[in-house]
Design a protein around this nucleic acid. Structure first.
Lengths: 194, 194
DNA sequence: TTGAGAACTGACCGAACGGTCAGGAGGATA
DNA sequence: TATCCTCCTGACCGTTCGGTCAGTTCTCAA
């Protein structure tokens, strides 16, 4: 009934194998031939189903992107204080859930503006930082950006760490950065420092 | 007098141009031809002076690596409390000073174990995390790793941020993560949660 | 002046990449 | 059976890359 189920089956296989390879070796280091071999088809078939390598990446990333969008929409409808906490736990959960993909995103971030498929994701990233910060104070926005970088960095190399452990570490770290008293107006030098 | 000054002059020119290009476009995206053109020589000359592209990167990174080693040696001889603060400010200062290089390091980190020239640097990274943590508590070591990732991430894309601003942000964030009370033994759920 | 060695180069190579294209295989339809 | 369309493929293309090599130019001491 879905028009051509065989088409979807092949597409899905390519997406799954591409996801695994991207997570394992990175985006640049994975060639279309690698994906095709893993998926049990020819490189031309990959290009038949996806309009170029970036399109493969976009398809692989799409579920994660949709989840981010949903999280943002959900958190936006909460009151500010709750929204921040929801954003923190939601973001970390999401990072753990798509941990294999995060290293890839990390790698591709610098070249993302060049790829039209990623426009919405960049915008969502900004919204997420806004929610994590909990306010529009530039200082808190900066800290939120720092926190996101820290979380992303935590997934850069394929750790052997368990999901739960990783989640706890990230939540703890992000809360330390973003909750509690506001950072000093100028550079803050905690008591007793050189 | 230094045996062959002309050799050193060319080497230095290549190193400087390579550093600028790496900082601007990244390591992978910079070809040997790019470096040669910028340095006003041929690609073969670059290969004559450096034993392959990774060797160029190693030479470019070497000053920063030496500074890290010096910082570690210095901090190691302080008392623990002072050592941590010295490590924090020293690390951030160093990150700002070599900001152009950090994005490159960030990019190359996953493939670093494959390049023999980088063995000592990886070891220094571990020592630095140990100093930043201020103790051997695994939880604090994890937070220190998170902090390093955050700082590195802050330099991933070429911000327009001023050095001072960046330094203040990083020091604030790292202190928030690593100083103050020890993180709870299990996952801490601040008051009022779903 | 001259010769030896250092410094440098153009031409070339093999490999890998993303992408294109004409056409084959195979099932549904008429 | 004949036709059509979807799915798929091998062969090929142009480009870029890191790296090699034989040979030329330059430097400098004897």
């Amino acid at each position: 009934m879905t028009a051509t189920p065989v088409r979807e089956r092949t597409r899905r296989e390519i997406e799954q194998q591409a996801m695994a390879l991207f997570a394992e070796k990175g985006y640049q280091a994975t060639s279309l031939q690698d994906i095709a071999t893993a998926a049990g088809c020819s490189k031309a078939t990959v290009l038949y189903h996806f309009n170029g390598k970036p399109a493969v990446l976009a398809a692989v990333v799409e579920p994660a992107a949709a989840t981010v969008t949903a999280l943002i929409e959900e958190a936006t409808q909460l009151r500010p204080a709750e929204a921040q906490d929801r954003a923190i736990t939601g973001f970390v959960d999401l990072a753990v859930r798509f941990r294999g993909l995060l290293a890839v995103l990390n790698e591709v971030v610098p070249t993302m503006p060049e790829i039209p498929e990623f426009g919405p994701m960049v915008a969502d990233g900004q919204k997420l930082i806004r929610l994590l910060a909990g306010s529009d104070d530039p200082r808190r926005l900066d800290l939120a950006g720092f926190a996101v970088n820290g979380v992303l960095g935590e997934f850069r190399s394929p750790h052997q760490r368990a999901d739960d452990e990783l989640r706890e570490l990230c939540v703890t770290a992000v809360r330390r950065l973003l909750t509690g008293p506001s950072p000093g107006p100028t550079h803050a030098s905690p008591p007793g420092q050189s």
